[in-house]
Computed example of a mutant assay.
Amino acid sequence: MIIYTFPIRTAFIDRDLEMICPEMKVSALEFTQSPTKLPFYFILQFFQLLWFLPRTTQYLCFFGGYHSVLPVWFGKRFKKKCIIQAGGADCMHMPEIDYGNFRKKWLRKATIYSFVNCSLILPVAKALVRQHYRYDQGISAKQGLLNLIPDLNTPIEIIPNGFDTEFWKDQNSPREPKSLISVATGTSKQSRAIVKGYDLIEQLASLHPEMKITLVGDENYFTPYSNINILGKQSKDELLALYNSHEIYLQLSTSEGFPNALAEAMACGCIPVGSSVGAIPEIIGSANLILKTKNYHDLEAIVMTIMKNDQSEAKKKSRERIVTNFDFDNRKKLLLSHLATH
């Protein structure tokens, strides 16, 4: 049995479980992101891992952090494989925007312990291994695991996310003219909104009242602009409809691993505009749709060019990019191959 631990249950956790469950027995153990609940969850997790120990063949963690410390320790102590899937914040040190595991003393220690002592690291993007960060000039250039843990010797293999493009597809329905959409959770917290690039989106809305912008994922996010529509978390079917009613998807993150919503929106025919961070350039694939540095005027120029031109060919290219390069079955095959060898 595989013990799968994570700090909070998300759509990509569900997708991993959907991949693994038909092939192997899995027990999913959610941890916490609340600092005040940490002591309780460490005790709870210890006894959960102890209870499952006789049936456990290996451990799988999404992200490195507090929740991965005990699975890694159990793995070493009882000679069971422990794999960590690196996802984003666990490979970043960006105190300037209050982001990344390495900005907090004890979280940094937990993250380093986990990555140094686990059996295998499976990042979702190459940029999480090592990157020379240039997007926001106020942030340190040295990011990624090998820059932040220079003596890291744990084997690393990149496995990008994969998507069900039979579900995420262009339904050829009418799209609202000059419509843009972005999806992110937790953005009612200001630092999180900046990480997700909402400051640039607000600027775009303020100077272009003709644009209709939808921000999905946090119903408590506040905006003073009437041309921004705020929606809370949506179901898969609701997201499918939203992607198919908008022309442009914005992924203007200051830092990112592999943004799932970007790929889902592209598979639905949205034309992407993204920042030059994490796997975003790799997902989008077209240099003219990438915001190389955090600059509003460059963003405006990219968006206006898309809106002025015929979008039919760009829509097709967006979908083809995901279908060709980020297949659900390919990720499933690679992930299962590592879980099968224990």
Rank of each mutant, 00 (worst) to 15 (best):
I2K: 01
R9N: 15
T10C: 15
A11G: 12
V26W: 03
F31E: 00
S34N: 15
F40I: 14
Y41D: 05
L44D: 13
L49Q: 10
P54S: 05
R55Y: 11
R55M: 13
R55D: 10
T57A: 05
T57W: 00
Y59A: 04
C61T: 07
F62R: 10
V72D: 00
G75E: 02
K79C: 07
K81L: 10
I84K: 00
A86N: 12
G87V: 06
M92V: 11
H93C: 15
P95E: 12
K104N: 14
K105Y: 12
K105I: 09
W106D: 08
L107K: 01
L107I: 09
K109E: 13
K109G: 13
K109P: 07
A110S: 15
A110G: 11
L128F: 06
V129R: 01
Y133T: 08
Y135D: 09
Q137H: 13
Q137M: 13
K142S: 15
Q143M: 02
N147Q: 01
L148N: 04
L148K: 02
P150M: 12
T154E: 03
P160R: 01
P160I: 03
F163R: 00
W168M: 01
P177L: 06
P177C: 05
V183N: 00
S191Y: 06
V195D: 10
Y198F: 15
A205I: 05
S206Q: 09
K212V: 10
I213W: 00
T214N: 06
V216S: 02
G217K: 03
D218H: 05
D218Q: 03
P224L: 08
S226Y: 01
Q234S: 13
K236M: 10
D237C: 07
E238F: 07
L242R: 00
Y243T: 00
N244T: 04
H246G: 14
I248D: 04
I248N: 02
Q251H: 11
L252A: 03
N260E: 09
A265V: 07
M266G: 07
A267W: 01
P281T: 08
G285C: 12
N288P: 08
L291A: 04
K292C: 09
H297N: 13
L299F: 06
T305A: 15
I306A: 10
M307E: 09
N309C: 10
S312M: 05
V323T: 12
D329N: 14
D329R: 02
R331K: 08
K332E: 12
K332L: 09
L334G: 00
H338P: 03
A340R: 10
H342V: 07
